[in-house]
Simulated scan of single mutants.
Amino acid sequence: MKKLGLATALLLAMTGAQAYQFEVQGQSEFIDNTVNDKDFSGAVQGTYYFKDVDASKGPLAEAAFLNQASNVSASYTYGEYDVDADNIDQTSHTFGAKGEAYIPTKVVPAYASASYSHTITDNKGGVANDNGDRYALELGAVVAPNFLVAVGYTSVADQTSYDAFNMFNNGVAKAAIEKDTINEDQDAITARTKYVGAIDGTNMSIGFDAGLVYGEENAYNLGTTLYVTPKLSVGVSYLESDLADLNKAIGANVNYFITPAVAVGASFVDVNAENESRDTQTVGLNAKFRF
Results as ranks from 00 to 15, higher is better:
D39L: 03
E138C: 00
L239E: 06
I177L: 11
K124W: 07
L139V: 15
Y76V: 09
I88S: 04
D86V: 12
A176Q: 13
A263D: 09
T94P: 09
A97G: 13
F208V: 07
V24P: 04
L212C: 02
S56K: 10
T229I: 11
S161V: 14
G99L: 08
G265N: 06
S233A: 15
S73H: 03
A61P: 07
P145G: 05
N247D: 14
E23L: 10
A164W: 03
H118V: 11
Q21C: 06
T34Y: 08
I88A: 07
S41H: 01
G5P: 01
Y227W: 13
F291H: 03
A266L: 09
V108E: 08
V262K: 01
S117Q: 02
D270H: 11
V228A: 13
A219T: 02
L148Y: 01
E80N: 15
S75M: 06
I182T: 09
G207D: 02
Q186H: 08
S237E: 13
L137D: 03
D54V: 03
T121I: 15
D37I: 13
S233M: 14
D163L: 04
S115F: 03
S70H: 05
F208K: 00
N131V: 14
L148A: 02
A101R: 09
E62L: 07
S28G: 14
A43N: 04
T160V: 15
A249W: 00
T91I: 13
Y111E: 10
D54I: 03
K51H: 08
Y78R: 09
D245K: 10
D185K: 11
S70W: 02
G152H: 02
M14Y: 10
G171K: 02
P230N: 11
D37L: 10
Q68F: 00
A144N: 05
T15E: 11
G284N: 07
A63S: 15
I199K: 00
V149T: 10
A17D: 13
D89P: 01
F40W: 11
G126M: 12
T47S: 11
G132A: 11
G46P: 00
E217A: 12
L10W: 09
F65Q: 04
D52P: 08
T77Q: 10
D86N: 12
E29R: 04
K174L: 14
K2Q: 13
N36D: 15
A157V: 08
Y162Q: 11
T121D: 12
N221Q: 14
S155W: 12
G99H: 03
S267M: 02
G201Y: 05
G265V: 09
E184M: 14
D133R: 00
A7R: 06
A188Q: 03
E100L: 07
G201E: 07
Y116D: 08
V196Y: 02
S117W: 01
G152N: 07
K51I: 01
E80L: 10
D89F: 05
F257E: 01
